[in-house]
Design a protein around this nucleic acid. Structure first.
Lengths: 195, 195
DNA sequence: GTCTATAAGAGGATAGAC
DNA sequence: GTCTATCCTCTTATAGAC
C-alpha cells in the first residue's frame, strides 16, 4: 500500500526539522522529497507551524501512551525499585528510536523564536503529564507509607538527574550505557549526599 | 572610556546568536542594540558569518589560553589526581561565565547548515588542542610510568564522561554540582566497571 | 489534489553621499 | 564611520486554473 501524501510530508519534515532545524528548513525542501510543489503542502497543513506542531504533538502523545501502558506502574514493589525500573523502561523506549527524543530535546533547548511560547507550553504539559503518572505509580508502592516525604523526593531527584544524564549520552554522544553502569550510578546517586 | 563600536557589535551579536540562534538573528537586530544601521556593521566585519566566527574563535582561544596557563599542568602528582583537579579547574572556569560555554555547545549540537563544515573544523581543532594539553600534562605525572596504558585511557574516559555530564548540568539545567558530589561521581566512575 | 503564478515581506549585502 | 537608498534573493502563503 502506498504511503499517504500527508504522511510523506510528515516524514520529510520530521527529518529536516531534526537535522537542519525549523528556521533553516523551508517548505520547498520538505516537498521536494515528497515529490510535490510547496503550495500543495497547504492543502494538508495550514502552515509550516501547523506542520511542526503536528509532529511535535504526535511524538509526545505517543510516548505518554507508551509509559501509561507500562505494567510496572501497577506492580507492588518498593519506591526505589519502581523508579529505577521505570527509568530503564523509559531509556529502552528512547533507545528504540532515538531520533524522536532528539527532536524534542532540540526544540526544548533551542526553540525558534516565533514558536517559543507554544513549545514551552507543550513541553510543560508533557512533563506535567509524566509527573502525574510518576506520582500515581509511587502511590501504589509497597513501602510508600513507611517512607518520609523527603526520602521519596530524593529518589525522584535521583531519577531526574540520571534521566538527564542518560538522555544526554544517548542523544548527544550516541552512547547507550549498559545496565550495570546504570545500576552503579543509581546506587551512588541515591547514597543521599552525592547530589 | 567608551566601548568601541566593534566591541559593542560583538556583545550584541553574542547575545543574540546565543539566545535566538544564528539563522534567526539578523544584522538589523544586532545593530539596533548598538545604535547604528545595519550597513555600518559591514565596515567592521565583512559578513554575518565573519562576525560569527570572530566570536566563536575568541571564546575558544580564550579558554585554551586559560587552561594552558594553569599551574596544575606542571605539578608532580598522580595521573588520577591531576585529571580530577583539571576537571574541577575547567568547571570553575565555565561556571564563572557559563554563557560562553553555552554558545559553543549550541553550535556544536546544532550547527546552522551554511556554516556546519567550518564549525566542525574549528571544534575539531579545539578538542585536538585540548587533548594535546591533557596528554602533555599526563606525561609529567609522578606515577605515569607505573600505570598501564589501559588504565590511563580509562581515567581519560572517566574525565570525558564526567565532563559531559557536568557541562550538561551547568549549561542545560543550570545546576552546578558541589565538590562533594563531583568527588563521589569520580570515585564511582573510576571503579573500572561503571562505564 | 496538485499545479502555476504571484503577492508580500524579510534579510544579506553593496554603492555612494556626507 | 555612519547614513540612505537600493538590489537581489529567498521564503511563506494565497488565488485560481486544471
Amino acid at each position: 500500500m502506498e504511503t499517504k501524501t500527508s504522511d510523506k510530508i510528515i516524514q520529510s519534515a520530521f527529518k529536516l526539522f531534526l537535522e537542519k532545524g525549523y528556521e533553516a528548513t523551508n517548505v520547498r525542501d520538505i516537498c521536494r522529497e515528497v515529490g510535490i510543489k510547496a503550495s500543495s503542502m497547504y492543502f494538508y497543513y495550514k502552515s509550516k507551524q501547523d506542520l511542526f506542531f503536528y509532529i511535535y504533538d504526535e511524538i509526545i502523545s505517543e510516548y505518554l501512551r507508551f509509559i501509561q501502558g507500562t505494567e510496572i506502574l501497577m506492580k507492588d514493589i518498593s519506591v526505589e525499585e519502581k523508579l529505577y525500573t521505570l527509568l530503564k523502561c523509559k531509556m529502552e523506549y528512547y533507545a528504540a528510536d532515538i531520533s524522536k527524543r532528539k527532536f524534542i530535546l532540540r526544540y526544548h533547548l533551542f526553540p525558534p523564536e516565533e514558536i517559543t511560547s507554544t513549545i514551552r507550553e507543550k513541553y510543560r504539559f508533557f512533563t506535567n503529564e509524566e509527573n502525574k503518572i510518576l506520582f500515581e505509580a509511587i502511590e501504589r508502592c509497597r513501602n510508600k507509607k513507611e517512607l518520609k516525604k523527603e526520602k521519596i523526593d530524593y529518589y525522584l531527584l535521583v531519577y531526574k538527574r540520571l534521566e538527564d544524564y542518560l538522555e544526554y549520552q544517548m542523544t548527544v554522544s550516541n552512547i547507550k550505557l549498559n545496565d550495570n553502569a546504570i545500576n552503579k550510578l543509581w546506587a551512588t546517586l541515591s547514597d543521599n549526599s552525592a547530589i
